[in-house]
Simulated assay, not measured.
Amino acid sequence: MTTTSPAPGTATPARPFDAVLCDLDNVIRFYDSSRLTELERAAGLPEGTTASVAFHPQQGGPLVLGQITKDQWVEQVADRLGGLDGGVRVPAQRARELAGALARSPFRADGAVVSALRGARTAGLSVVLVTNAALDLEEDLAAMGLTDLADHVVNSALEGVAKPDPEIYAIAVGRAGAAPERCLFVDDRRENVEAAVALGMTGVHFRGPEDLRGALAFLDR
Rank of each mutant, 00 (worst) to 15 (best):
L84W: 14
T122H: 06
A116H: 03
G111I: 00
A78H: 11
E97D: 09
A120T: 01
R96N: 11
R80H: 15
L117K: 01
A92Y: 11
A95C: 09
A103H: 08
A99P: 02
V113T: 13
V127C: 00
A109E: 11
R89L: 11
L81D: 09
G83T: 13
G87T: 00
A109C: 08
A123G: 01
A123F: 02
A99Q: 07
G86P: 02
T122K: 10
A120V: 04
G100H: 15
P91A: 05
G86N: 07
L117R: 00
G111S: 06
R94K: 12
Q76A: 15
A109N: 11
A78L: 13
T122Q: 13
G111C: 02
G100V: 14
V113K: 02
R80T: 15
R80Y: 13
D110F: 04
A103T: 04
G87V: 05
G119P: 01
R94G: 05
G111Y: 02
A112C: 00
S105D: 14
R89G: 09
V90I: 12
A99N: 01
S115M: 07
F107C: 10
V114H: 03
S126Y: 05
R118C: 01
R108S: 14
R104M: 13
Q76R: 15
V114M: 10
R94W: 11
A101D: 10
R80F: 14
L117S: 01
R96M: 10
L81E: 08
A116Y: 10
R80P: 14
G87S: 07
V114A: 06
